[in-house]
């Protein structure tokens, strides 16, 4: 079974009538995810995805009608924070925010507001979660991964697809693959997910795919040193990134020494975590030990 969500979790999609939301809702549905509703203010009463999925004006009405437990958000950046607030207020268990480019002050208010709620936010700027053959929430392409015993936590999208694809080609598989997001302010960091992988009977090895900027990997290393017994592997990108420049992701910027790849790599090595020094080494490293 997947970490975090159960396989038959009922999911609503916020922004389902937008181009991205519609496309990925269809992909999730095809994968077998239990999509039960869409939410687009003003489009309540419509039916989408070949007339199979009802659209509601609000998250609250969608939950009342369908019993949805989780949301995947594709709402554009200027309204995405509001969409998260709405999902939290409606007491959904899990919110996966795919939207990139939410203003930071909006995210700080969201995060503060969420301190008193039970909702767990993944992202923003997250590709979501994929448990091969079981459930998919978000945009990770289902066809690249096979079921297996490796758990993956990453801050990026396509890099993760590349790595997961290489792992598949090498004959190994994935238990759950989850993206925490490429933004500087995130709902969920590595430690919470490391804890879930540690407890997950389907996961034997854990791979973290980190990058420059912030203290996310530092927090991961501290957690791993104290709590994890399963072998953890790591790969960090951004060795060649200059200081002070934002490398695509809003969170991928070296603002102080602690945000550099060199610093993170040193921490990882010192903690005895197995480090892949380049992308091509990853499958072999995972498979040999």
């Amino acid at each position: 079974m997947s970490i975090l969500v159960k396989n038959d979790i009922s999911v609503l999609v916020q922004g389902i009538t937008g181009k991205e939301g519609h496309f990925h809702a269809q992909k999730m549905l095809n994968y077998g995810t239990h999509i039960v509703a869409g939410v687009t203010p003003g489009k309540g009463g419509d039916w989408v995805l070949d007339g199979k999925i009802p659209v509601f004006d609000s998250v609250k009405t969608a939950i009342e009608a369908t019993g949805a437990e989780a949301s995947v958000i594709f709402v554009p950046a200027d309204h995405a924070a509001d969409a998260i607030f709405e999902a939290v207020e409606a007491q959904l268990q899990y919110v996966f925010c795919v939207t990139e480019g939410i203003p930071m002050q909006d995210m700080m208010r969201v995060k503060r507001y969420m301190q008193t709620s039970e909702t767990q936010l993944i992202g923003p700027n997250s590709p979501g979660l994929l448990s091969p053959g079981q459930v998919k929430l978000g945009i990770i392409p289902g066809e690249i991964a096979k079921p297996g015993n490796i758990g993956v936590i990453s801050r990026s999208g396509t890099l993760t697809y590349e790595i997961v694809n290489e792992i598949s080609k090498a004959g190994a598989g994935i238990s759950t693959c989850i993206g925490i997001g490429g933004d500087p302010i995130l709902g969920t960091g590595y430690p919470e997910l490391l804890e879930l992988f540690e407890a997950d009977p389907d996961t034997e090895k854990i791979l973290i795919v980190g990058e420059i900027g912030g203290k996310f990997e530092e927090n991961a290393v501290r957690y791993i040193s104290q709590h994890n017994t399963k072998p953890v592997y790591a790969f960090i990108v951004g060795k060649s990134a200059p200081e002070g420049r934002r490398m695509g992701h809003a969170g991928a910027i070296i603002e102080k020494r602690a945000g550099s790849a060199a610093y993170k790599i040193e921490l990882i090595k010192n903690a005895g975590i197995r480090l892949a020094s380049s992308i091509e080494e990853i499958p072999a490293l995972l498979l040999k030990s």
Partner: peptide, 13 residues
């Protein structure tokens, strides 16, 4: 993708 782009630059370097 930003992560893949950084990984590509690292490989070149």
């Amino acid at each position: 993708g930003a992560g893949l782009a950084m990984a590509t630059l690292d490989l070149l370097s």
